[in-house]
Design a protein around this nucleic acid. Structure first.
Length: 632
DNA sequence: ATTAGGG
DNA sequence: CCCTAAT
């Protein structure tokens, strides 16, 4: 309904908000010395980066050595030196089957399909224990793997199929292999530390053609600070993901699930309550519940032809739910024995606001690493706060009791949520670093405040800001379906009464590089941005007054059609509101009025019409317009 | 989808 | 303008 409403009159003008420069960059300047860097949180990311590097190096250096024997077998070993040190080593032996020919090549010499074993080794060392137990335990970075898929040195894992336990396409710097999740087994070797996971030896030549635009790589680092939990999830839009978890024990898990590609989109477009409903419908449960923190969404795409309202609406609703998108999984237990009911919460994980990393395909892993790092730092640098969300509403009053807040034994778990919110300075601080604008860093629809977007500090983005409508092309391969993601990253520019959808690249450069959701920034962008303000012009007021005089106050739908049928950005609700303000304006002294002054004669008419319709049954069908107009 | 009001 | 309850 609402959606419809917006669609109906929506148009997208409202979305045509000025591009808001978003991007804090100053943060990038901060170096590894930052305290936050030393936090576990950051290390986690480093791990990722390190892993990527390792993979790369291994791939490049190893030419044909099969260190572990079994050929055609992938192996990922995780060494757990000790829970204390949390030194982890992830080894992955992969026998690349084919090198992507199209690969511009990490090393041009390998442009042929060559089967070479690759030994991948990751060392996750010294996961720092955090000093404080505050909420910066988790950090999540979600990247659209499209950006790195074609990077020779990238590491990507994506589900090839949309079925549970389907095959994962693993790309280690150009070497591709497939992994069958269901075959992954854990082979614990002793209490000590080496746990090996064998992926079925199903390496198969896999030519990478095109890219699934639905792929997302998610790296999740739950609190490893104090608990040493580290999660690395790599999932695609279909919600499959690999996860490395070193909670109490090291585990590697592969999750496969039904397609939830749309879920993400849905989440962005729908009010949480709807999402919940959707989830329920599908009987889907967030992986989050087990600490994973990876959310998936089911989305029912709706036809949209006039985007403004639709998106605005969706975004808007979304925003309410999770203040900062940081959602968490937790469990609540009840105590039947307490004197006064006790509510126990077992929060298994927090998820920081999602971050989106957007980098050119040509970016290097190193760049990606830096980008991620920046993002993490941005978040961790700020103080984190915990928010409590009950039934989609944030409980701001810390003095309220749980009971008063609706958090009782009987409360539905689904209605309770915790969020981690960071209070980063302004986004601007993160901008900075004159980096080459990444070709397509774009802002999201004005109405859909973007998630933080991290613009990798890549320098070779030769891409020009894509022209309006084609901007999406940069993100999508021709035949690919336009993912919601891309759409959301698009910026629309207001066009008076235009129904055309105009997508523009964000203002160039100053493209934000890192926009972590933060108390402040998020507030501004939240999940949705309010429509750009568009004061009524005198002529509009005049039209409105005229319409109300004839139709009466209350028949806004008719007023809309009569006087603003072509003004897509004026909904009947807007007209109703405007009338309200007009009545108010007309009743106050001119000195108290603001904005473009409305001719007194119009205000007089407003008062007259208001008085008139207040006494008459406004809603009836057309009345004697004369009656009213004469007097006026 | 609209209307009516509060925020 | 946004958000919602109530139609």
């Amino acid at each position: 309904m609402v959606l419809k409403k917006r669609k109906y009159y929506g148009g997208f003008h409202g979305l045509l908000a000025p591009v808001i420069p978003k991007a804090p960059r100053s943060l990038r300047k901060r170096r590894l010395h930052d305290k936050s860097l030393e936090d576990g949180g950051i290390c986690a990311f480093e791990l990722l980066a390190a892993a990527a590097d390792k993979l790369l190096q291994e791939q490049e250096s190893e030419s044909s050595t099969s260190s572990t024997g079994s050929k055609g077998k992938e192996q990922i070993s995780i060494h757990e030196e000790s829970a204390r040190h949390e030194q982890l080593e992830v080894k992955a032996k992969v026998e690349p089957v084919i090198l992507d020919h199209h690969d511009p090549g990490a090393s041009g010499a390998e442009s042929e399909s060559v089967a070479k074993p690759t030994n991948l080794e990751l060392s996750l060392k010294e996961l720092p224990h955090s000093e404080d137990d505050s909420g910066s335990d988790h950090a999540s970075i979600v990247t659209n793997s499209d950006f790195i898929k074609k990077v020779n040195t990238s590491l990507t894992m994506e589900a090839i199929e949309d079925k549970p336990g389907s095959i994962y396409d693993v790309n280690f710097g150009g070497n591709r292999a497939e992994i069958h999740p269901e075959v992954v087994e854990k082979q614990s070797r002793g209490l000590t530390s080496v746990k090996t996971y064998n992926m079925k030896d199903c390496l198969k030549p896999c030519v990478h053609t095109g890219v699934s635009n639905k792929s997302y790589t998610s790296v999740h680092f739950p609190s490893y600070k104090d608990k040493g939990n580290v999660n690395i999830n790599i999932r695609d839009d279909d919600e499959k993901y690999f996860r490395y978890n070193n909670r109490s024990n090291t585990r590697l898990r592969v999750f496969g699930s039904r397609s939830r590609a749309g879920y993400r989109r849905m989440r962005k477009m729908m009010p949480s309550r709807y999402l919940k409903a959707a989830r329920k419908l599908r009987g889907y449960e967030l992986p989050n519940s087990n600490g994973g923190g990876v959310k998936s969404f089911y989305h029912k795409r709706k036809n949209i032809y006039m985007g403004e309202r639709f998106q605005a609406d969706a975004a808007t609703k979304r925003r309410k739910l999770f203040h900062h998108s940081s959602k968490n999984s937790y469990t609540k237990e009840e105590s039947s024995e307490s004197i006064s009911n006790v509510v126990k919460f077992s929060i298994k994980s927090f998820k920081v606001p999602e971050l989106y990393v957007e980098v050119p395909e040509t970016a290097t892993v190193g760049s990606l690493k830096r980008s991620v790092m920046e993002a993490v730092k941005a978040i961790l640098h700020s103080k984190l706060h915990v928010g409590v969300v009950v039934q989609g509403k944030k409980v701001r009053d810390d003095n309220r009791t749980l009971q008063q807040s609706g958090i009782s034994q009987n409360c539905n778990l689904e209605t309770l949520g915790f969020t981690l919110e960071s209070s980063l300075p302004e986004a601007s601080p993160f901008l900075g670093r004159g980096e080459t604008p990444s070709c397509n860093t774009q802002q999201r629809l004005p109405r859909v405040p973007s998630n933080p977007i991290i613009n990798g500090g890549f320098s070779n983005s030769s891409l020009e800001p894509p022209p309006p409508v084609t901007s999406l092309d940069n993100h999508l391969e021709k035949n690919e379906e336009i993912p919601a993601f891309a759409a959301e990253v698009t910026t629309q520019v207001p066009v008076e009464d235009s129904k055309a959808l105009v997508l523009l690249p964000a203002l160039n450069e100053e493209v934000l590089s890192v926009i972590p959701l933060s108390e402040k920034t998020t507030k501004r962008y939240e999940y949705s941005q309010r429509r750009t303000r568009r004061p009524f012009s005198v002529s509009e007021v005049e039209a409105l007054v005229e319409a109300v005089e004839t139709l009466g106050a209350g028949r806004w739908r008719d007023v809309k059609m009569r006087a603003f049928n072509d003004a897509n950005h004026r909904t009947y609700v807007d007209l109703k509101d405007k009338w309200k303000t007009l009545v108010h304006t007309a009743s106050i002294s001119p000195q108290q009025r603001r904005g473009e002054p409305v001719p007194q004669n119009l205000l007089d008419r407003v008062l007259a019409a208001h008085a008139y319709w207040s006494q008459h049954q406004a809603k009836q069908p057309v009345k004697n317009v004369k009656t009213l107009e004469a007097p006026m």
